[in-house]
């Protein structure tokens, strides 16, 4: 694909004998972290009045606010292309936030790179490519704990308790697992850092309804251990049922924000997003 950056222009070359397309990273808004300032008060994690987009592209988010409190599950729902995933990526620092800020546990972390946000205690599970397919399940978990210098065997045992199937398959390459099991690996990997908040980008995308129910159960279990969860979901109805708080986004803007129950009860939300 040609683009304004000559280094990104490969002239459509697909020659596998010289160029390896697999696993290449995507550009991040910043390669070095800026300053962290203290900002006491407010919710545990909040992306406040965020406006921004990818690279030099147009704004996708417009004055959008997402937050989650301690011990809560917050979900972001909305129609396709509403900027749900984008909003979550903005909170995680994967796209340029041109105005607005992100606060975590009383600190302004807007200027941090995603890696440094992980260090600060954010756990993030991307929607796709969220496991190391050629590594075994156990190695995936180990890599999740890469930033930890202490003994992480306890955490791994906890993850295995939470997802018993992973313990069974721990020596298998994660790429050989089923869709639902892969998602468990992905969540398990993120939990290995002992995050202060867990962010899930459509964890149930592409899995069967039965597996989806099981995944939701597991997510509730994780939340019960005291980790606040911020989640993007396509299946709005199920998500709002388990949510303490819901954010309905439309075209990058907050359309409705309320508790999960209230949103389920709101006739307008029901009509527009939940199919009546």
């Amino acid at each position: 694909m040609s683009s304004s950056n000559p280094y990104q222009d490969d002239r459509g070359n697909k020659d596998r004998s010289i160029a390896n397309p697999a696993g290449q990273g995507s550009p991040m808004p910043r390669s070095k972290s800026g300053k962290v300032s203290s900002a006491p008060g407010g919710p545990f994690l909040i992306g406040e009045n965020m406006t921004g987009g990818y690279g030099k592209g147009p704004d996708i988010l417009h004055d959008c606010t997402i937050s989650v409190e301690r011990g809560e599950i917050a979900v972001i729902v909305g129609p396709n292309g509403a900027g749900k995933s984008t909003a979550m990526k903005a909170v995680f620092g994967m796209l340029e936030v041109r105005s607005g800020r992100v606060l975590l546990d009383g600190e302004d972390i807007t200027q941090l790179t995603p890696q440094d946000r992980v260090v600060k205690g954010m756990g993030f599970v991307p929607q796709t490519s969220n496991i190391f397919t050629s590594l075994t399940v156990e190695e995936n978990l180990e890599m999740g704990a890469f930033i930890r210098t202490d003994d992480f065997r306890d955490t791994m045992a906890q993850v295995y308790d939470l997802f018993p199937i992973l313990k069974e398959k721990r020596r298998q390459p994660a790429g050989e697992l089923s869709g639902g099991q892969r998602q468990q690996v992905a969540v398990g990997r993120a939990l290995m850092t002992k995050p202060k908040v867990l962010m899930l980008d459509e964890p149930t995308a592409g899995v069967s309804p039965i597996v989806m129910d099981e995944l939701f159960d597991r997510i509730i279990e994780v939340a019960r251990t005291g980790i606040p969860i911020l989640m993007v979901e396509q299946n709005a109805r199920q998500a709002l049922e388990i949510a303490d708080k819901g954010f309905v986004l439309v075209q990058g803007r907050n359309a409705f924000t309320d508790t999960g129950k209230a949103l389920m009860a709101d006739p307008e939300v029901r009509r527009s997003f939940l199919g009546g």
Binding site: G23, Q24, G25, S26, M28, P114, Q115, V118, V119, F124, P126, S129, N130, I131, F132, T133, S134, L135, E139, M143, G144, F146, I147, R189, T193
Partner: peptide, 15 residues
């Protein structure tokens, strides 16, 4: 190996 497999995820894992 993780970096080779998935650069973005490796980055998010603090590698």
């Amino acid at each position: 190996r993780a970096y080779s497999d998935n650069e973005d995820l490796a980055l998010l894992s603090g590698i």
